[in-house]
Design a protein around this nucleic acid. Structure first.
Lengths: 343, 343
DNA sequence: CTGTTAGCGCATTCAA
DNA sequence: TTGAATGCGCTAACAG
């Protein structure tokens, strides 16, 4: 029809015809069908963001960054939760390919190359977010977890801690691995061998953090500090410490990853390595959109953003006399005990 | 092709043919094109969830509820942020209709009937979530905000407060209106007239809460308690109180709406009217999916779920001598000052 | 059991 | 300046 020309402002149309068409459109409430359009053009103007849990503020912030860039460029964004399950992830990716999304932003559920290989085979551009995958020929945006952990642990060591437990995430996830690696390097740099290491793996959840902390606290040689591999683990660990009748940072210091947004926490308390989540989402989406543009596969880009170490009140020096700390169960905790030192 | 029959397991296919087709599929890595399928069947197996801010834990929890039900039924879910902007919402809805989503879960940016009317006109089923719209012939799922506010304020009145400020949301949003209405009814029930009312409207954000609280604190007759219309406002209000050198609940009690998930808060502190966000998402999605089923428009359903009032440490009795509270700036705050009384 | 025809809504190409 | 033909990938309804 001539209608198409009107809608797309292409070709020659008489003023008269245009007006009649526009009138009809308004009257009928006609809305063009993007499906048919996509079928013809083989592009849907839709991207997908596949992540592990939309419920985590780190990811929602990242998602906002992605969405803002995408919609600015006229793209829609579909979110998918995998819950760290590879099979779930495989299902989601298949569904997305069926829907012919133009590109995928992927926070891989595991550091296997399968998912990326599948997408590449299907000619769907991918940008890997937040985590490493073995296949290095892929665009990616993340932070240097190894270094972040190294610095956090260094900070604890400088405070005088020697018994530090790493409460990490699922062993199959690269960020969990890297954060343990940084932890080890920091200990080693102080001449602390592997006998000083206390490493626990568990889910990236509050329950996981709670359980790991509980175990760590039960060790005969109780640690004086925790390195939590993400925000939920840190919260869970804190709750476990409190439930054990201990306090932070008097008995146990806690440092962690991923800051909680200022609009969520009344009194920022945790010492963290904060990732620029919003910017990560933006950067990844920009890279993805650029790649949609050119046919020629430019060499792949690997963006590694810096962490920001934010020191707050959850980290302090250890007790002089660790044995005495048992008796400190009655001491008052100190959350919110001083003025806010938010960034 | 016979291929279609294989993929859909329909009709008669010889074992031989089936195997050959399956082999070919595996080899080529063929993935069927849902767009074409949707074009034919006029259904996309996709729902949309249009909300104001995916960054708010209340909405992410709701979103998880919606997604879990949707994916369980083989539907995908698209998220859209409107940032409380009606024009943004209109754009998003148009885009969704163009994409021919099968149905929409809508948290309306304003209580105008326009958006719902548009969708109805386009024959796209809608379920309105969390907020009221004037058009009552629509399925909806929400909580009774008026009653929730009434009970929260009642609680404050029972503690002895008489100067209570309502820090509400955007005036055009039904939940903001209803929560003020409940506030008024509670005051009135104690014989407190409109001269006792302190009502502020602002954005549903931490910054909004901060600013409104700042204004309320500057009143010559300073309130002794705040009713915050959502979680972000409560957090912002708390920060403003602290910044003014005052403490909660000694100088100012705070009660609010929407609880923060336990995996986010180390020490639950705020007294709130909690909405069952996850369940709301589930219920709404189920209703939407049911409606997709039948052609005959069953009468519309209006689900109103109960709030759960959770009393924590942010609410307490007012000072005997309000004038003296000025000098309390140095007093220690009490966040985390007692054991956790989480539900 | 398997292949052919036709049409979902759109836009490019070519005629009128 | 406008209309008609064609095909994107799929499947229901028919032949074969």
């Amino acid at each position: 029809m001539t209608v198409s020309r009107v809608i797309n402002n292409s070709g020659y149309i008489s003023q008269d015809a245009r007006e009649r068409v526009e009138a009809a459109i308004a009257e009928i409430g006609y809305v063009p069908n993007t499906l048919a359009r996509s079928l013809r053009f083989k592009q849907t103007k839709t991207l997908a963001l596949v992540l592990t849990d939309i419920t985590n503020p780190f990811f929602t912030t990242l998602a906002r960054g992605a969405e803002d860039v995408a919609s600015e460029q006229g793209f829609n964004l579909i979110f998918c939760n995998t819950d760290e399950s590879e099979s779930e992830q495989a299902k989601e990716l298949t569904a997305l390919v069926q829907k012919r999304v133009d590109g995928v932003l992927l926070v891989p559920a595991a550091s296997s190359a399968e998912a990326v290989a599948f997408l590449r085979e299907q000619n769907v551009p991918v940008v890997v977010l937040d985590r490493r995958v073995p296949d290095c020929t892929v665009d990616s945006v993340r932070c240097d977890s190894e270094k972040g952990a190294y610095e956090l642990v260094k900070l604890l060591l400088d405070l005088g801690h020697t018994h530090i437990a790493a409460l990490s995430g699922p062993q199959k996830v690269s960020t969990a691995q890297d954060r343990v690696a940084g932890y080890r390097r920091a200990l080693a740099s102080r001449g602390l061998g592997s006998d000083a290491e206390i490493v626990l793996y568990g889910p990236f959840s509050q329950a996981g953090g709670f359980e790991m902390a509980r175990q760590a606290l039960a060790l005969q040689q109780r640690p004086t500090a925790f390195l939590a591999a993400n925000n939920f683990i840190a919260v869970g660990a804190y709750q476990a410490v409190r439930e054990a009748g201990l306090s932070v940072p008097e008995d146990i210091s806690i440092v962690g990853f991923d800051d909680l947004p200022t609009w969520l926490v009344m009194e920022p308390f945790l010492t963290v390595a904060a990732q620029p989540a919003y910017e990560m989402g933006q950067r990844a989406t920009r890279i993805l959109l650029e790649r949609l543009g050119r046919e020629a596969p430019a060499e792949c880009r690997e963006v590694v953003l810096p962490f920001e170490i934010i020191v707050r009140r959850s980290s302090g020096p250890p007790h002089k006399d660790p044995a005495a700390s048992e008796s400190s169960a009655e001491r008052r905790p100190v959350v919110a005990d001083e003025s806010t030192d938010r960034e």
